[in-house]
């Protein structure tokens, strides 16, 4: 039975629950915009990291480098698109 619930999976799950609760702080408490966004950014990216490394086994095969490069590249593209669009439409409009 214990075999069916390996420790690092359980830990990952608990960790993700904790992160969710931490993120909830931004609606429960009256934080400044910067502080709240910082919390959200950190918890969200950590959650993504947990899934990627612990659950998705991104680093287990011989294609590890390709897979990580691939994900990092696309996160770069995502950030460029989002920030660029915000720059054009909100920050410098």
């Amino acid at each position: 039975m214990a075999q069916l619930f390996p420790k690092h999976h359980v830990m990952g799950f608990i960790f993700s629950l904790v992160l969710t609760v931490v993120a909830m702080a931004v609606v429960v408490y009256d934080l400044s915009y910067t502080a709240a966004m910082a919390i959200l950014l950190i918890t969200a990216f950590m959650q993504a990291g947990v899934q990627l490394v612990m659950f998705m086994h991104a680093g287990e095969s011989e294609d590890k480098v390709t897979i990580y490069t691939n994900v990092i590249y696309m996160v770069f593209f995502a950030i460029v698109t989002i920030l660029g669009t915000l720059l054009l439409f909100i920050w410098d409009m």
């Binding site: 720059l87 054009l88 439409f89 920050w91 410098d92 409009m93």
Partner: peptide, 9 residues
């Protein structure tokens, strides 16, 4: 219509 900063970048 975006600003100078965006255009410069």
């Amino acid at each position: 219509g975006q600003g100078v900063l965006a255009n410069s970048i």
